[in-house]
Amino acid sequence: MSETHTTLSLELKHLLIETLELEDIAPGDIDPDAPLFGEGLGLDSIDALELGLALQKRFGIKLDAEAEETRRHFANLNALQALVEARRAN
């Protein structure tokens, strides 16, 4: 795994924790393969909107809240990371 890849993974974990106020979660608690929503980390629909806004602010990525592909991008941390690597504008 490249250093850039690892750095981005950690950055995204911090983004999740800070943006979603996950006060009891440390970066090491977030399994990159585990679902972010429902089972797994346990995020909800408000978190999905908040995360979409954070991706727009931090990386310039605009997502369609209704699109099926958005659901896939938010499946787990690895999917989120692939999205950011492919579409980041800054």
Binding site: L20, E21, I46, D47, L49, E50, L53, Q56
Partner: peptide, 9 residues
């Protein structure tokens, strides 16, 4: 700026 969905809710 856009407002936080969490704060709004």
């Amino acid at each position: 700026e856009p407002i936080s969905p969490t704060h709004f809710s």
